[in-house]
Design a protein around this nucleic acid. Structure first.
Lengths: 148, 148
DNA sequence: ATATAATACTTGTCAAGACAACTATTGCAT
DNA sequence: ATGCAATAGTTGTCTTGACAAGTATTATAT
């Protein structure tokens, strides 16, 4: 691998990701959806999982506990999700979407669809496979190093 | 393009980028380099460009003016860069690395090299070309839409 | 020449992430 | 049964980023 070429490959990822997030945020705003991309990630995870613990929510979205704690608090305050104590283990909180939360998730889905359609224009399934493979490889390279 | 597969491709990029940044930050700390990845990006840009305006620095690092303003202030306070008013246009500031700044850049280079070597283990030049092409395509798709 | 627009940069506010430190609760070893 | 470790979550602090609004300076239109 020619390392001189990969100088700042992180910067390249960073710039692209910023564009993707800005684009999504803008689309949400244009459609009166008061969600950030990160809040959407949390809601999307809950939409798939019904009722889960905050800890699982953190693991599923690859966010740390403090970040999830704060986003959950914000979304509870806005009425999108509910949080209730677990009876068996009082350390835990069970989190789930409210009706309002499910509504905004469904309202946001076509916007996500549009954003993806635009972002992937001119790219094909092989490109997606390649991107996924490369990102997974980088992730596992770093994660495995972390453990050892 | 099968859109169902690309659901949350932004999340995938996000997770990978977080790992890359965390890994780099950890390596900096282990080597007593008191820099964040973002601060490194600024310093790296300055190392290539000698003396530039803050605005150019922002463009080169794809950060917005307020973000650059604050990182620059922080790095000036720590003695890594210097900022002096431009004589011809008093709105502008000329920014450049100090000796201390160049030193830490040189000290950080092998750490960047190590991080890249680890991150790209098992990937080849074609993978890098593919990743670059795909990221550029996504970026241009979004940017061109922005203009229209 | 003067008003207005544009440019360069700063400041304020909120969201999010990294990390350390904290509380409360539960699990486990002996 | 008691002490200690582990777990779930919260809070605090700092950094970064998005975005709006501000100041100061320069360019431009008439």
């Amino acid at each position: 691998m020619d390392l001189s070429k990969t100088k700042r490959f992180g910067v390249h990822l960073d710039v692209t990701l910023k564009l993707i997030k800005q684009d999504l945020l803008k689309r949400f705003r244009q459609n009166n959806i008061d969600l950030t991309p990160e809040q959407w990630t949390i809601i999307s995870e809950l939409a798939d999982q019904e009722t889960i613990y905050q800890r699982e929510l953190a693991a599923g979205t690859f966010k740390d506990a403090p970040t999830v704690s704060r986003i959950v608090e914000l979304l509870v305050n806005r009425g999108y999700i509910s949080r209730k104590a677990d009876k068996l283990d009082r350390r835990k909180f069970l989190v789930s979407l409210t009706k309002k939360g499910r509504d905004i998730y469904e309202k946001s889905s076509p916007i996500l669809y549009d954003a993806r359609t635009l972002g992937w224009k001119g790219l094909n399934n092989q490109d997606y496979k390649d991107l996924t493979r490369i990102l997974n490889k980088i992730s596992s390279n770093i994660s495995n190093d972390e453990i050892s």
